[in-house]
Design a protein around this nucleic acid. Structure first.
Length: 845
DNA sequence: CCCCTGTTTG
């Protein structure tokens, strides 16, 4: 193209703009819905154009197409932009249109204008032909085709509609730089819409600013895509700000509301959506059918059936007739939310309006029937819709109902009848027996019964049903295998579970983490370290993680049996296998070592945890701190206490309690009390254990009055003493020679219906004897034996009580009463004849 | 999901 040609073309371009802007209803003014060349919009195409159009169409639709077709060659001179536009719009297939378009591009003497490009773009956009559209957009720029702002807008919208927002954005700039078009507000609006569809909020913001800077101003069609892009990006605040501006300027319309409503619905903001609906109604705008449907779907998804029902009602009142799919959503939602009555109501309403509920709806209702009466009612209504497949579904529902009502036998019998192909009778739903065909069970049928049998511990029955599935060719699945394996593992039937595992693998079912962990758990419970490690290796192969609770179980089992050292070895073996144990498992091992008095080893392991990149938590610190306190190593415990605070961990009540116990047991109650005041400062609420520990400590230090004061403080703070607290106080007071005060608390304790242990009675009896108060000592003794309590001969309390009884039998105030008790058999006679040393001659009580 | 705190030296 020569320079003079460009100048001539440019002049032509500006003339055409002038022509367009002068015309009364230019396409660039408003929506640009339909674009065609100017000459055509004023009058219908001339008869000549119609004739040539028909000829082209006939040639291009005649198979096969050949560019050498003499008929076609004759037509070439008649090729004008008007003809091309007309021909393009009359093809039914986009492919043929594109063929014609490409062919015409190559004809000498012919050149596309923006109107022919746009006609093609529109066809490709509707047919969602993204690749050729992209090429077309390039061609437009390459051919240096001039265009009006409206025409550019149209092309941009064609691109935007198929998600080519980035391409539209590029085209916009290229066309501007090349001087092919001077975009106006409408063009910008189209661009914003296109970018919005590809979701780029930042780009929209940038272009919006650019257009304002150019002084184009903005209107409703500018802000609508801005609102949309913020909504799509979930930018709630920004979206609302834009909406308010639209609203304040009075630009709000149905579409704007629709955008916001759909977004609220998508974000699960049901209440905000409802508020907006009210506002819409205040504006006298009616929701359309699509909006109703979108909202109902959204509300149901949020389980807001109240609002969904309201909207559904509104929809009907607005004159829309809900179709089956909306009924399906509503009924489904109601069933899931257990609003069965409302679900059934909709079902009846649907039938009344002449709509036939499909199997989807029917199955939702059938599976929601909670009793046989409901089911019978439903069946009466829709019996004619039943086929063999729905009968299976129906039977499954009946079995579910039985299972949920605790009648597994009925469910089992029904399944058996199905397996044997017998007529279904006597299941409480009479109408079933009139079904003549065979009702085959499916996988769900078996799952319902097998899973319940497993829950009830009827493992063998479940297994035999599982075998029946093979027999009748019913598909098994991973979940069933998993549940059976889990059942076997819980019954410690390890070998059989291995067998099922092998079987499922042979059938091509990949074991899940659940499968392998069931077996792992069983091995852990059995303390089978070797088997557990082998299974961990298998997990590695399948890419599954051993569950912490199982690893911890093995550690705890080993520790329970004094094998804490072995448990440590297992932990390091796990690391070898590539699984770093959790702090919980480590803690269990630390606790195990402490239990066998290997506190130093425990400390070593505790330090190792950090070295392995695992961080001790508060509980882990609690275990080691308590271990040290119990081993009378309070100073070290205190250091660890400070260390955990340095690390930013917050000591729990248990931490404080352990420290308090440590101080008390090492004879430093004052430091224990200091801990309590620390707790008050740090607003860590002391519990009944804290007080019990301190009360015991105070009594042990010979401070019964302080103990009683603390007791009152405890109650004053609303912390109710339990039986351990009572027993600690009573025994502590006895130790301090406060038998009477101790007795008061025994009475209080019994009033609160707490039963003291024998040692409490023994402590009281002993204390009263020591005070030479035989009557009260005897009173407690009698109370104890009347309640059927007496220490076992091997119990330390036995010798204490023996001494007491000896004293009471020697005191004239009580001797006859003691004798009576012996005569009654409440006290073993042998107790007085024996010297007081328990030298093996006593066989039993 | 799993790890921790108090009363009885037996």
């Amino acid at each position: 193209m020569t320079v003079s040609k460009i100048i001539r073309a440019q002049r032509k371009f500006y003339e055409s703009i002038k022509r367009i802007d002068n015309s009364s209803d230019s396409f660039s003014s408003k929506f640009g819905r339909r674009i065609c060349s100017k000459s055509e919009s004023s009058s219908s195409p001339s008869s000549d154009v119609v004739e040539v159009t028909d000829k082209f169409i006939s040639v291009f639709t005649k198979q096969p197409f050949s560019s050498d077709n003499p008929q076609l060659i004759n037509l070439v001179p008649k090729l004008t932009n008007k003809v091309v536009e007309s021909v393009l719009n009359n093809f039914r297939s986009w492919k043929v249109a594109h063929l014609f378009f490409t062919w015409s591009s190559n004809q000498h003497g012919y050149k596309h204008t923006i109107y022919t490009y746009n006609a093609m773009a529109s066809i490709l956009s509707r047919a969602r032909q993204i690749a050729p559209l992209r090429v077309l957009a390039h061609d437009v720029v390459d051919s240096r085709c001039f265009m009006s702002p409206g025409a550019l807008g149209f092309l941009i919208r064609c691109l935007g509609n198929v998600g080519l927002g980035q391409e539209a954005n590029m085209l916009f700039d290229q066309v501007k730089i090349e001087g092919l078009c001077v975009p106006n507000r409408y063009t910008y609006n189209c661009l914003l819409e296109a970018i919005c569809k590809s979701g780029s909020a930042d780009l929209v913001e940038m272009r919006l600013k650019e257009m304002c800077d150019h002084g184009w101003g903005y209107d409703k069609y500018t802000l609508t895509p801005v609102l949309q892009v913020y909504c799509n990006a979930g930018k709630f605040d920004k979206a609302l700000r834009v909406f308010n501006e639209i609203y304040d300027r009075g630009w709000v319309d149905e579409h704007v509301f629709y955008i916001l409503l759909v977004s609220f619905s998508k974000w699960g903001e049901v209440d905000k959506a409802c508020e907006l609906i009210k506002r819409i109604e205040d504006c006298n705008i009616r929701l359309n059918e699509k909006t109703f449907c979108v909202l109902i779907h959204g509300f149901v998804k949020e389980s807001r059936m109240d609002k969904a029902l309201q909207l559904f009602d509104k929809m009907k009142k607005s004159g829309f007739f809900p179709d089956v799919s909306i009924y399906d959503v509503m009924i489904g939602g109601l069933c899931v939310n257990k609003q069965f009555e409302a679900a059934f109501q909709l079902y009846y309403e649907m039938k009344e309006s002449g709509k036939k509920p499909d199997m989807g709806i029917l199955s939702k209702l059938i599976s929601s029937c909670s009793d046989e009466g409901e089911l019978t009612q439903l069946l009466k209504e829709s019996w004619e819709d039943m086929d063999a497949k729905s009968m299976t579904l129906l039977c499954n529902s009946i079995m579910s109902i039985h299972v949920n009502n605790g009648s597994i036998n009925k469910a089992y019998n029904l399944l058996q009848a199905m397996i044997r192909g017998e007529t279904i009778t006597d299941v409480g739903v009479g109408v079933l027996s009139s079904f003549k065909g065979k009702v085959s069970p499916n996988t769900t049928s078996f799952s319902i019964v097998i899973n319940k049998l497993l829950k009830d511990g009827k493992l063998d029955l479940a297994l035999s049903l599982f075998r029946d599935m093979n027999q009748i060719g019913c598909k098994q699945n991973v979940v069933l295998y998993n549940n059976l394996i889990d059942g076997l593992c819980n019954s410690n039937r390890l070998e059989e579970s291995y067998e099922l595992l092998r079987e499922m693998e042979e059938l091509g079912f990949e074991p899940t983490h659940f499968t392998l962990n069931s077996i792992f758990g069983c091995l852990c419970g059995r303390q089978d370290v070797v088997g557990a490690l082998n299974l961990v290796r298998k997990m590695r192969v399948h890419g599954h993680e051993p569950w912490i609770k199982n690893t911890t179980l093995l550690i705890k089992e080993l520790c329970k049996h004094g094998k804490a050292v072995e448990s440590c070895r297992f932990l390091s073996d796990m690391i070898q296998e590539g699984y770093l144990p959790d702090i919980v498992s480590y803690s269990a091992a630390v606790g195990g070592l402490i239990d066998i008095q290997k506190v130093d080893l425990a400390l070593e392991l505790f330090r190792d945890i950090c070295a392995h990149g695992c961080c001790p938590d508060v509980v882990a610190y609690n275990i080691i701190i308590n271990g040290l306190c119990k081993a009378q190593r309070v100073a070290e415990a205190r250091d660890l206490f400070n260390e955990m605070i340095m690390k930013g961990l917050v000591p729990s009540v248990a931490t404080y309690n352990s420290m308090i116990n440590g101080w008390c047991k090492s004879g430093d109650v004052n430091r224990g009390m200091l801990c309590l005041s620390q707790m008050y400062e740090k607003e860590r609420e002391a519990n009944v254990i804290t007080y019990t520990t301190l009360i015991d400590g105070l009594c042990g230090a010979g401070k019964p009055d302080d103990a009683l004061m603390l007791w009152n403080e405890m109650e004053g703070k609303g912390c109710a003493p339990n039986r351990i607290a009572f027993m600690a106080l009573i025994q502590g007071l006895c130790k301090c020679g406060r038998a009477k005060q101790a007795l008061v608390h025994l009475r209080l304790m019994k009033e609160r219906e707490m039963k003291p242990d024998i040692f409490v009675y023994v402590a009281l009896i002993n204390a009263f004897c020591y005070e030479l108060n035989s009557p009260l000592a005897f009173e407690i003794l009698k109370e104890m034996v009347d309640e059927g309590n007496f220490p076992h001969p091997l119990d330390k309390n036995y010798s204490v009580i023996q001494d007491a009884i000896l004293k009471l039998s020697e005191d004239s105030q009580t001797s006859s009463h003691v004798k009576n008790l012996i005569v009654e058999g409440s006290i073993p006679a042998i107790i007085l004849s024996d010297s007081g040393s328990q030298s093996g001659s006593i066989s039993s009580e």
